[in-house]
């Protein structure tokens, strides 16, 4: 068993929290709304690395999700979403406060195998883009082909976003998700509001307003 330290980042009691975009006030569209932008903050994001053969069983057992081994595939259930990032790397996004427990269960299920699970929830945020002009806003922002014919629901890619990068995912027929790094979030938001202006872009308040604190009470033990 790998000697790896797990760390629960969430306070036991509610604490003041700030999402990466807490400082930007929401604003309705000028005129008719063609695109809607919402920050979905305080989710737990985990990077899971390992060989598919190593991970698949544990992932299925703990998350109830089939590990997506096809490139650019995004799996989703009520626990969360699991996205292929690379042949040995996946992005797991779950409800805020759930990450520590799930990581521990995955570690237990994986035992001695070689893998890595890293909490990156403080380092990125999720922006949801919806509306009839969402695709055009994305076309202005990324070099990746986001045409719905080429980008079906359930696909997700990492690509260039303006002069930054983003994970781009298609959730359903009308909704897209962008996973952006915390430090670039302000830039990406300003870019999106600018690119969306001609279509009428509404910026919704961040949801949820504050993080939920620790879901399961644990001490900050070292798992070995």
């Amino acid at each position: 068993m790998s000697k790896v330290v797990q760390f629960d980042p969430h306070p036991a009691q509610a604490a003041a929290t700030q999402s990466p975009l807490h400082h930007v006030a929401a604003k309705p569209a000028v005129g008719e709304t063609g695109v809607t932008l919402t920050e979905r903050a305080f989710l737990d994001h985990l990077i899971v690395r390992g060989e598919p053969g190593v991970l698949a069983g544990a992932v299925e057992a703990v998350l109830g999700l089939e590990l997506p081994t096809q490139p650019q595939r995004l799996a989703r259930n009520e626990t969360g979403s699991l996205q292929w990032l690379s042949p040995d790397e996946w992005l797991l996004i779950v409800a805020g406060g759930e990450g520590f427990r799930l990581q521990r269960e995955l570690r237990e299920a994986l035992g001695e195998a070689h893998f890595s699970i890293v909490d990156v929830g403080g380092g990125q945020t999720l922006l949801e883009l919806s509306g009839k002009h969402a695709v055009e806003v994305l076309m202005k922002s990324t070099v990746y082909d986001v045409d719905p014919r080429h980008f079906p629901v359930g696909k997700g890619v990492t690509s260039v976003f303006a002069k930054a990068t983003a994970v781009i995912r298609r959730v359903d027929e009308s909704r897209w998700e962008l996973v952006v790094r915390r430090s670039f979030a302000d830039y990406c938001l300003r870019w999106l509001l600018d690119a969306g202006e001609e279509y009428g872009i509404a910026h919704q308040p961040t949801q949820p307003a504050v993080a939920s604190h620790r879901q399961t009470v644990t001490d900050t033990e070292t798992v070995s």
Binding site: I47, R49, G50, D88, H114, F115, S116, V118, D119, V120, G121, G122, G123, Q124, R181, R182, S183
Partner: peptide, 13 residues
């Protein structure tokens, strides 16, 4: 070598 690298620059303040 059995090792994985993951950036956590933005995660930690």
């Amino acid at each position: 070598l059995e090792v994985y690298f993951t950036s956590v620059t933005d995660h930690w303040a």
